[in-house]
């Protein structure tokens, strides 16, 4: 496994108002690998994920301390534009949220925003993203129809295609399969495994089997702290901490 660091996190703490949600998180996320975050509900996984592309900026009264570097660059540096950061660090949400426009326009929206392609080149880019997201065969004849009419699983793959369309380096996924049936879940897992050749994937999941199947690295969060972080083999096979062991063996409240 390649271990070039992609994201390094140093002493990150996060507050919603006076309520601290993350406590002194440190980790190094390797490039071109799948990193999974697991942990009980409310332990701060989503909060942490949203720190990585600064989606928490919008929340009134929130505060972050510490440092997050992406390929050596501090993401909160003044010279970094949020738009450019979010283009580089894409995000797929738990609930698929297609834009109220056609399937084609959904995928073309990002490239148009960042003026990446137009005309034929844009058509090709849209096709490539839909193929990569394993959705092309199902929608190639109805690109002009509304994205709202797709099934939940198709919508989620559309959202993945949309994320791929601006060619990010890192893809954050917050429980991308939790609203999907086993078949769609399976397809998205396959997709993630393929994606890691080109992208760094960071995924939050409640499905421990899924984390074990697809991830190279695993982080276990508990009450806002990163209890354990290491290769998935170690975390699931011989966890160093008792809390981790309890959680992955279902002995946890």
């Amino acid at each position: 496994m390649q271990t070039t660091p992609c994201v390094t996190v140093q002493n990150v703490s996060f507050w919603y108002g006076s309520n601290q949600a993350l406590f002194d998180i440190n980790m190094t996320i390797p490039q071109h690998a799948v990193t999974a975050f697991i942990g009980p509900s409310g332990c701060g996984k989503s909060t942490f994920l949203r720190c990585l592309n600064r989606m928490n900026d919008r929340i009134d009264g929130s505060k972050m301390t510490g440092k997050i570097e992406l390929s050596g660059q501090d993401i909160r540096d003044r010279s970094v534009s949020v738009e450019a950061l979010r283009r580089t660090v894409g995000m797929v949400f738990q609930k698929p949220v297609p834009f109220p426009m056609s399937i084609y326009d959904n995928v073309a929206f990002g490239p148009r925003t960042h003026q990446l392609a137009r005309g034929r080149a844009l058509d090709e880019l849209v096709e490539k993203c839909l193929i990569d997201a394993a959705l092309w065969d199902e929608v190639k004849d109805k690109l002009k129809s509304s994205a709202m009419a797709l099934s939940g699983g198709q919508q989620q793959r559309l959202c993945i295609a949309r994320t791929l369309s601006v060619s990010p380096d890192v893809i954050l996924m917050d429980e991308p399969c939790s609203a999907l049936d086993p078949n769609s879940t399976h397809r998205i897992e396959e997709l993630i495994t393929r994606l890691k050749n080109e992208y760094t994937v960071i995924i939050v999941t409640h499905n421990l089997q899924q984390a074990k199947r697809i991830s190279d690295m695993t982080g276990f969060f508990l009450r806002g702290e990163l209890v354990e972080f290491g290769s998935s083999e170690t975390v699931f096979g011989t966890p160093a901490r008792k809390e981790t062991d309890d959680y992955i063996n279902g002995r946890f409240g």
Binding site: E83, R86, G90, M91, V97, F109, R162, V166
Partner: peptide
Amino acid sequence: PQSLWDASLALGTP
């Protein structure tokens, strides 16, 4: 819904 905002902003859309 806020989720629609998030989905668009997460693409780096101003």
